[in-house]
């Protein structure tokens, strides 16, 4: 067989090469790696531990049991655990948003043009970014869980070894969806400011119109409506159900279905856009 015949005609060729390039940039850079670990520590230590909800309910009043109220509101007896699991899902937002910046960088440095001139499928170029961001998200989620555990995370009775893999699966799915979203938005952008501005605009509502810090049922009705279509809420609910809740898995399947659907739809849109818009 001649050499030319061995050349891959597989439409997915180059996927791992490009994914691995992005991953290498991450794990071979000690500073980026270290910040990825320090950041969740800060979030958990500063916000998670400072918001000591049980202390604001006065103890000693007959018929008023602080930890019962907390448990009723948050589904777990301490706020830190509630919030920490929110952070597990939320680090994915930060990690995914980085895709936009890396895409703009590749465009500006000419790497994108180089790749576009090779027979790599247009969708593979984008999906490689999405996959690398999803893998990073899973790693980040693992770090947050370890740190939370060290900071005395209270596991629920739902917890089993498989829960950890469930969380990873959940984070991978939402990571896929979110990075596809950010990729689609920054597809044609050549300006560095754009992905940053979009990121700032999008993160705040994503974060607070979800159950990351507060339970949805206590929000005003209009915010509840938003939070109920926010895929982050479903991710967080799934993660909590797997890790810290004690009242059974309940709507876990629904959580997975919703996040999965979100990922499939947004990735689909991203692929279609790549055919149409990646070449100018």
């Amino acid at each position: 067989m001649s050499e030319e015949n061995k050349i891959s005609r597989n439409r997915l060729h180059g996927l791992w090469a490009l994914t691995n390039r992005d991953l290498k940039k991450w794990y071979q850079n000690p500073i980026v790696f270290l910040i990825g670990i320090i950041q969740p520590i800060l979030w958990l230590a500063l916000l998670g531990k400072a918001m000591n909800m049980s202390s604001i309910i006065p103890a000693g009043i007959p018929g008023l049991n602080p930890s019962m109220i907390i448990a009723k509101t948050f589904g777990t007896p301490d706020y830190f655990s509630f919030m920490a699991m929110g952070m597990v899902a939320f680090t994915t937002v930060f990690t995914s948003a980085f895709v936009g910046i890396s895409l703009v960088f590749d465009r500006r440095l000419g790497f994108m043009n180089k790749v576009l001139s090779t027979p790599v499928s247009r969708s593979v170029i984008l999906i490689s970014k999405v996959i690398s961001a999803s893998i990073r998200s899973v790693f980040q989620a693992a770090i947050v869980m370890v740190i939370a555990y060290i900071m005395e995370l209270r596991l629920g009775t739902n917890f089993s070894v498989f829960s950890v893999f469930g969380v990873f699966a959940m984070v991978f799915l939402i990571g896929f969806g979110l990075s596809s979203l950010f990729t689609s938005i920054t597809l044609r952008t050549t300006r560095m400011e754009t992905p940053q501005a979009i990121f700032n605009l999008v993160t705040l509502p994503l974060m607070f119109a979800s159950s990351a810090y507060f339970p949805i049922q206590n929000m005003p009705w209009w915010l509840q409506d938003i939070a109920n279509v926010n895929p982050i809420s479903y991710t967080i609910d799934g993660v909590r159900r797997l890790m810290i809740f004690s009242d059974g898995y309940g709507p876990l399947l629904k959580d997975f279905a919703f996040v999965g659907l979100f990922a499939v739809v947004v990735t689909g849109i991203c692929i279609v856009l790549s055919w149409r818009y990646l070449n100018k």
Binding site: K6, I7, S8, R9, N10, H13, G14, W16, A17, L18, R21, K24, K25, Q28, N29, L109, G110, F111, N113, K114, V115, T118, P119, V120
Partner: peptide
């Protein structure tokens, strides 16, 4: 367009992968 974090050899292999070689 070569990746600064990779070696020259790794860069060429990356190019080869993009051509499905």
């Amino acid at each position: 367009t070569a990746d600064e974090d990779l070696t020259g050899y790794e860069n060429i292999l990356l190019c080869a992968d993009l051509y499905g070689i």
